[in-house]
Amino acid sequence: MKFGYLLLIFQTIHYAFGIDYDGWLNIKIEHTLACGGGYCTRGNIGLKSIRSGSAVIDQTPFTKQHIDALKELADRDGFYTVRTIVTSPDNNDSEFLSSVKAKTFLENGLNDVISVWVLPSGTVMSVSFQATNTSKPLKQKNEQYHITSKFYLHHVEQAPIPDTASYIQKLEREREAREKGEVKDNRSFLAKYWMYIVPIAIFVMISGATNPEAGAPAAR
């Protein structure tokens, strides 16, 4: 347990170094179990600081009604779907959907992993939900079934952006230099005029193939 906790701290610190922007995030978790149609609240994840990565997870325990609905999905080999709504300081809400097999989630005793991928700018790119790979029995307490979630914040490195403006300026300078005659063409004769030589060579070859006896001496 201590090793896993230390590993989580190490990952959080490692990703935090690459974050340029720091701010809060709120992640609302919703599902469709025993909701009477549509989505309803399952819980909430709050981060005071993206850079620190520390999160507070608050989730509503499942009731027997939720478990019965989950078992019904599992009997049909259906999927348990979670919708997450991310709210950031710029007030732009982002919505993400993620699903796992209902049977897997049930067999793992309502243990799941929620991962968030964020850009250095603080923009959330993805939120994924998955069940753990270990089989655990359901834990019931006072007719309630508690959800155990692990949360991970991942930093996404942006790919380098090509300097298009500099490349265009370079092409313009080369074009102007050619027009002024400042750039010497050191290519060979064939390299310069191959587009004219090749058609002529092909024409000669075709002509020779169609008239093989044209150049032969007359028989006596």
Rank of each mutant, 00 (worst) to 15 (best):
K139L: 15
Q65W: 09
A219T: 12
A55H: 02
S207A: 13
D112V: 08
S52D: 12
A69V: 05
F3A: 14
K170Y: 09
M195K: 13
V156R: 14
Y193V: 04
I168T: 13
M205K: 03
A201E: 08
E182T: 11
A218M: 13
I200D: 12
F79W: 02
S121P: 00
G37F: 06
Y152C: 03
G38C: 04
A34I: 01
P137R: 15
R76L: 01
Q65H: 13
R51Q: 08
V127T: 10
S52G: 06
L110A: 11
P137S: 14
G53D: 02
S188A: 04
M205S: 14
Q130Y: 03
N26G: 11
L73R: 10
A74S: 09
Y193T: 11
Q158Y: 00
A131K: 12
A102T: 04
R175I: 05
Q130A: 13
F189D: 11
P162S: 08
I206A: 10
K71C: 03
L153Y: 09
T63N: 05
D163H: 08
G23D: 09
T87I: 01
Q130H: 03
V86A: 13
E30C: 04
A214M: 14
E174T: 02
T63F: 01
L6D: 12
G36S: 04
A209G: 06
Y193C: 05
E72T: 10
D58Q: 05
W117Q: 09
S121D: 10
T148F: 00
W194M: 06
E213R: 15
E95L: 11
L25V: 02
Y5V: 14
R220G: 14
A159M: 14
I85E: 07
N133L: 10
I27M: 02
R51C: 00
L138Q: 07
N91C: 07
A201L: 07
S128C: 02
A55D: 00
S126Y: 11
K71P: 00
T32Y: 09
L153S: 08
N92Y: 08
L25N: 03
Y152K: 04
L119M: 12
A201P: 01
G38A: 09
P137C: 13
V198T: 06
S126D: 00
Q59H: 03
L119K: 11
V86R: 08
T12L: 13
I114S: 08
I200W: 03
H154P: 04
R51Y: 03
Y21C: 05
G109R: 12
K184S: 09
Y167V: 12
S149Y: 01
N142W: 09
S166G: 13
S126E: 02
N211R: 15
M195F: 09
K101T: 06
I9S: 15
E176S: 10
A159L: 15
K180F: 06
D20V: 03
N186K: 11
S149A: 10
V124K: 03
T134W: 01
Y193E: 15
